[in-house]
C-alpha cells in the first residue's frame, strides 16, 4: 500500500512540472497566477498522500494551513492585478 502512495506522489510531482512550464512560458501575468494556483492544489493533494504514506498526521495539518494560506495569497495577487492595492 505504501509504495502505491509514493507512486501517486511522484506522479503529482511530475504534474507540478507542467505548472512550472506554464509559469516560465505564460505570456501574461494571469497565466502565471493560474500556474501557481494549480501547483498549490497539487502540493496539497501530495501532502495528504504523503501523510498517509508515512502515517504522520502532522503532514495533513500542514496541508490544511497551506490550503487556507495559499488561498489568501491568490486573493491578494488577484487584488493587486486589478489595481486595487
Amino acid at each position: 500500500m505504501m509504495e502505491t502512495f509514493f507512486i501517486v506522489a511522484v506522479f503529482l510531482l511530475i504534474f507540478m512540472i507542467f505548472g512550472v512550464i506554464r509559469i516560465i512560458l505564460g505570456p501574461t501575468t494571469p497565466d502565471r497566477v493560474v500556474g501557481l494556483d494549480t501547483i498549490n492544489t497539487l502540493v496539497i493533494a501530495a501532502m495528504i498522500i504523503l501523510g498517509a504514506a508515512y502515517n504522520e498526521v502532522i503532514y495533513i495539518d500542514v496541508a490544511i494551513v497551506y490550503a487556507l494560506l495559499s488561498f489568501v495569497g491568490t486573493l491578494y495577487i488577484a487584488k493587486y492585478l486589478e489595481g486595487g492595492l
Binding site: T28, T29, P30, V33, V34, D37, T74, L75, I77, A78, K79, L81, E82, G83
Partner: peptide, 9 residues
C-alpha cells in the same frame, strides 16, 4: 478571483 483580475487588467 483570478478570472476577474485577468479581465479587469
Amino acid at each position: 478571483a483570478i478570472a476577474r483580475a485577468a479581465h479587469r487588467s
